[in-house]
Design a protein around this nucleic acid. Structure first.
Lengths: 193, 193
DNA sequence: AAGCAATCTAGACAGTGTCCACATTCTGGA
DNA sequence: TCCAGAATGTGGACACTGTCTAGATTGCTT
């Protein structure tokens, strides 16, 4: 056993793998992300990841959950920044789109149906999704207090869809980044004062 | 040369390949679609596709263009069905989402940034995208005739984003199908009479 | 200190996209 | 009509991938 090179046991491979994968995700899509490349980046054999993630899909799910956590956090920061309700709504929407633009592939991974099935309670995604719903529901309740539950749900779905659609269309190149703020402005303008 | 089995030349391989690929897309995502499987479905060797599509990406682009054409056509049919402007807007939005739900993987392919880069004028996507923009711009101009160009662009971006986001979130399982109509209703309610 | 579980390596297999060389068929000009 | 060259199709090869199995090394528990 030579003390020089890497030890047989990495020590913290699980995290090293996820870090390496996240770095690769910055420049490549999830489809191009190979388990073997991740292992190479982490300096271990091509099979080491299987002791921490049973699967390629498992790694992707883990990455998606971590990314979702970041996305939720970014929105919560924006919501906590203060201002009136409409201003906060706009800030949250901008934060959502900004995250998508800055971390395109991570964002795509979060909403990849092959990776994340919302109904699945096994992953840690569920509570993150709930947190996002709660954040949005709070804003909607402040903006449309007179609406009943179904009405508020409809507004929440529409808002989420708009912001999500903007993020998708901008990251796909169908809309320029400059289109985001005006589009969001028309939204909050349509909300009651 | 035996007359019995398949002839050496298929006759119409290009179309047969695309048909086979489209059938596979009904049940599998584009990521899972393999050129060799397509060739197998079409009953040719694994290399035959390369004489019609230089690339796997090339096949996907072709599929995406064909799907986009269907999506545009579905919207135009909805728009032509008549009714007042708000009713037509709603119908177009519903047609968009319905296409996404009925042809999930084809829809995802259309908006896959790895496959379709809007700036690229080489593909036949460009004019289809223009057609879609024109359809939407017409509706927006009718709904907000007093808005200036920038204002109408903002409304168009917001509307497209909402409908697109709904399609994405429903196909990804984050929203139930039943949420679509109410969400779209809040939109057209926000438009001026 | 011994043994067991966790962790890591190496080798193998089937599947994939793509390149190459070769075979077959179609087609247009003499 | 015939025949060269283009179009189309086949098979083999290579590197790459995910995943399985078997074995090596290490850390932990008692």
């Amino acid at each position: 056993m030579s003390r020089s090179a890497a030890p047989y046991h990495h020590g913290n491979l699980a995290e090293a793998l996820e870090t390496a994968a996240r770095e690769l995700l910055e420049r490549h899509s999830a489809a191009e992300l190979s388990l073997r490349e991740v292992a190479r980046q982490a300096g271990v054999s091509h099979n080491a990841p299987y002791h921490h993630y049973g699967d390629r899909a498992s790694l992707l799910k883990s990455l998606a959950a971590r990314s979702m956590a970041e996305l939720v956090e970014a929105q919560q920061r924006a919501a906590d920044a203060g201002g009136d309700t409409r201003g906060r709504l706009l800030a949250v929407g901008l934060a959502y789109v900004e995250y998508a633009v800055e971390h395109t592939h991570a964002f795509a991974l979060i909403y990849d149906p092959e990776v994340c099935v919302p109904g699945d309670p096994s992953s840690s995604m569920a509570e993150l999704i709930d947190a996002n719903h709660a954040l949005l529901a709070e804003l909607v309740a402040e903006l449309w207090p007179q609406a009943d539950e179904a009405g508020q749900a409809a507004h929440a779905a529409a808002l989420w869809s708009t912001v999500h659609g903007l993020a998708q269309l901008v990251t796909a190149g169908h809309l320029p980044r400059e289109a985001v703020a005006p589009a969001l402005a028309t939204l909050s303008a349509s909300a009651p004062a």
